[in-house]
Design a protein around this nucleic acid. Sequence first.
DNA 1: TACTATAATAGAATTATTCCAAGATAGTAA
DNA 2: TTACTATCTTGGAATAATTCTATTATAGTA
Lengths: 139, 139
Amino acid sequence: MERIVRKYRGKGFKLTPQRIAILKFLEGNTNHPTADDIYTEIKKKYPTVSFATVYNTVQALRDRGELLEITIDPERKHFDPNPSAHHHIMCTGCGKIGDVFFDYSESLGLPEEVTREFAVTGNHIDFYGICSSCRAKTS
Amino acid sequence: MERIVRKYRGKGFKLTPQRIAILKFLEGNTNHPTADDIYTEIKKKYPTVSFATVYNTVQALRDRGELLEITIDPERKHFDPNPSAHHHIMCTGCGKIGDVFFDYSESLGLPEEVTREFAVTGNHIDFYGICSSCRAKTS
DNA sequence: TACTATAATAGAATTATTCCAAGATAGTAA
DNA sequence: TTACTATCTTGGAATAATTCTATTATAGTA
Ligand SMILES: [Mn+2]
Ligand SMILES: [Mn+2]
Ligand SMILES: [Zn+2]
Ligand SMILES: [Zn+2]
């Protein structure tokens, strides 16, 4: 928590109790929670917290480059407190999202007809698969 | 249009006038339209068409493997009548989505800690960039 | 031509997300 | 400390995308 305070102090980002709770929940969290996941968690300690606060906070973090919005799930957005470039894999059985830490950039050269039209700035890979617990169920 | 009839005849997929209009709009369309784009177009010829029909039709096509749902745009789904494996690039300026026809699968080996947990079934790459017309504007 | 499974429609419902106005408060500077 | 104010929180309304439902219509088939 001291690290959190140190990280955001003096950056025009006010550290309110709700925000600190959100930051603590997100810190090191590799579950890629949805807005609802965050809301449900923070509500345990701050029963009057609102969705607006959750969305405002994740937006503020996103704008500061501290958090990523993940689009791999067509149903809803997931948030990732690890802003370093990495990729994701989602289980098509249960929706679980895992991290893929590998830089494929070298292999992702684009065809000339694409680079003629687009100046490429980034990439993100969505992998799909079946997680071990889902495999256990169906087999 | 004859090709469309031939393709779907006798497969439990009724070819209504609205569906034919949707199929014609989608056929060869590389613009990755949204549900609203489809609705707006079909409404020109069938003013009473409903969103339910648009969604029902794209779902039926998706279930038959004739159409893909694209998640590259965090705001809304886009649909792609080309179901063959390919990737996409979106302009972060105007939202335009282009196709990337290149099979990167050979280069997309996953780290062992991922394959231990997930049996991989597929992948899709989202590229980001700036399209030529957006570059013309800002420069 | 008649039948029936499937589709189309209007509109309500649901869900995710954003907006808004009013009241609080974190951080700062005196 | 204290006071100030820019920023934040909140409940609830608003928006937007998508799905559901009940009713009516019709494509495909016998
Ligand atoms: Mn991640
Ligand atoms: Mn495409
Ligand atoms: Zn699973
Ligand atoms: Zn553009």
